[in-house]
Simulated scan of single mutants.
Amino acid sequence: MAERRDWDQMGAASGLLATVMFVIAFIMFMSTDPTGDTPYPSIENAQTVNDFFSQNPNQIRLQVLFTTLGIALFLWFLGSLWRVLSEAEGQSARGSVIALVGAGAGSVLMLVGLALTYSVLLTTSPAQANAAPALFTCSAVLFALGGGVLSLFFFAVGKVILHTGAMSRWLGWLALLTAVLSVLAFTSPFWLSGVLNPATGALGLWTWWTAFVVWLLLASLVLTFREYRRPEEPAKSGPVPTRPTTEGAGA
């Protein structure tokens, strides 16, 4: 039981590590001076992506790396969260399953988007350089769609928390708010520029992404404190073996 308790505590705390990864990735992004003379491209001016990436190759690589690590740690945290929610729901655990599927599908889409972003940095020929704007556009759209799919995760988590009391109710309401903001990511592929574009938009990217990271931080803190305060389960003991008796032998 002690080993399971250790794994539960590490899983709960992995959300905190994921938040750290996301913060470092944001610092790397800001170090590229995204609003400078050569700004980070929106979908409308994706043709400038080669210039921007060539000026900041290492920062972009680190941004992709730390964001990828953060998503991987989020999936580890998801295992601990799913256990808490499914135990609170009981045998059906429908909401917990929807949350698990939504988080997994959203994470896969975001990881594919990050892979396409990284592939822009690997251009070694004029033909590949010509394809960079299309790859950049695809990466932004896939990342946004991943955020949209995460709305299923947040709606389900909020529903389970509010109906079962599995965690603090305020965390459930915050999950529902994050779900509404994540739905905006579904609209971002239709916008080339402005606040809803998926590459640089305030509503198309930054609002739902910030809400996701903040919720993850708070949920991980709550779950980590809960796991450390949970009393350790006593070890299960099997039945005491009995020695065969010889009374009555030969009777």
Rank of each mutant, 00 (worst) to 15 (best):
L109A: 11
P41I: 09
T38A: 10
S107Y: 12
G104W: 06
A131R: 06
V112I: 15
E44F: 11
R83K: 13
E44T: 06
G95E: 04
L100Y: 14
V84F: 05
S14M: 14
G104A: 12
P34H: 10
T32K: 00
S86Q: 09
T67M: 14
Q91F: 06
A46F: 01
T68S: 15
E87T: 10
F77Y: 13
L75I: 13
R61F: 07
N50Q: 03
N130D: 13
P57K: 05
M28E: 14
D37N: 12
A127E: 15
V20E: 06
I71V: 14
I98V: 15
I24V: 15
S14L: 11
S125K: 11
A127C: 04
V101K: 00
G90L: 03
F52T: 03
F74W: 10
T68M: 13
T124Y: 06
A131G: 05
V97D: 09
V120W: 03
S119A: 11
V108D: 03
F22C: 09
F53E: 09
M30F: 07
E87W: 04
I60T: 03
E87D: 14
G90V: 01
P34Y: 11
D51L: 06
L135Q: 13
S54T: 01
I71H: 02
L114M: 08
V97F: 11
V97A: 12
A103N: 14
Q91D: 12
V97Q: 13
L69I: 11
L65I: 12
D33Y: 01
M28Q: 12
G15P: 02
G70M: 00
L109E: 08
W82M: 08
S14A: 15
Q91H: 08
N45E: 08
N130C: 00
V64W: 00
L109T: 04
R61K: 12
A132V: 04
Y40H: 09
F74R: 04
I98Y: 12
L73I: 04
Y118N: 11
S125L: 09
F136N: 01
N45S: 08
G102V: 08
V23I: 15
F66L: 08
L116R: 08
L109R: 00
N56Y: 06
V108E: 01
D51A: 14
D51F: 03
E87S: 10
A18C: 13
T48A: 14
A134S: 09
